[in-house]
Simulated scan of single mutants.
Amino acid sequence: MVGKRGTRRERWQAAGARLRERALSAAGTAAAGAGLGVRTLPGVAGPLLISYGLWLAWPPLGFIAGGGFLLWADRRMP
């Protein structure tokens, strides 16, 4: 039966095309987020590990280094 909206097959094909567009958009967003995470992780993990190591040697030094890294990161923000 052909109606105003087309045949059943045409409606299913249109619905599939819309879902495909949404899936590709979601995959692109996820890939962009993963790339940002991979680029950001070393910049965050490095200072944390240095601060933790210094804290193990002498606890106040770890806090001082952590504060210094935060001040340094704040100055890098535009």
Rank of each mutant, 00 (worst) to 15 (best):
A14P: 01
L19Q: 15
F63P: 06
A26Y: 04
W12Y: 12
F69W: 11
W12A: 15
G16P: 11
V2N: 07
I50R: 05
L56W: 09
R22L: 00
A26W: 03
R8Y: 07
T7S: 02
R39K: 09
W72G: 04
Q13R: 05
G43S: 03
P59N: 07
S51A: 00
R22C: 00
G28T: 02
G6S: 00
V38Y: 08
M77R: 15
G46Q: 06
G68S: 10
A17L: 07
G66L: 10
I64F: 08
L36G: 15
R39V: 12
R20V: 06
T7P: 01
W72A: 07
R20W: 08
A32V: 06
R75P: 08
W72M: 05
L41Q: 07
K4F: 12
E21A: 15
Q13S: 07
G46H: 04
A15W: 13
G28F: 04
A31Y: 05
R75N: 10
G35W: 14
E10R: 02
R20L: 13
R75C: 09
L61T: 01
V38I: 08
R20H: 11
V2D: 07
L41T: 11
D74S: 12
P47L: 08
A31H: 05
G28K: 07
A27I: 09
K4S: 12
M77A: 15
G35R: 15
L36Y: 14
A27L: 13
R9P: 03
G16L: 14
R8H: 09
A23Q: 14
T40V: 15
P60N: 02
Y52Q: 06
R8V: 07
A14V: 04
R39W: 10
P42N: 05
T29N: 12
L49W: 09
A26C: 01
A15I: 10
I64A: 09
V38Q: 06
G46W: 03
G53L: 14
G62F: 00
L54Q: 03
M77K: 15
A45P: 03
G35Q: 12
A17Q: 06
K4I: 14
R11L: 09
I64Q: 03
F63L: 15
L36M: 15
R76I: 09
A15D: 13
R8W: 05
G66V: 02
L36N: 14
L49K: 10
R39F: 12
G66W: 03
Y52L: 11
W72T: 03
R39D: 08
A17Y: 02
G6H: 00
D74K: 12
R8L: 10
A45C: 04
G53T: 10
V38W: 10
Y52A: 13
L61F: 01
L70W: 06
L36S: 15
G66P: 02
R39E: 11
A65Q: 13
G33Y: 09
R11D: 01
T40N: 14
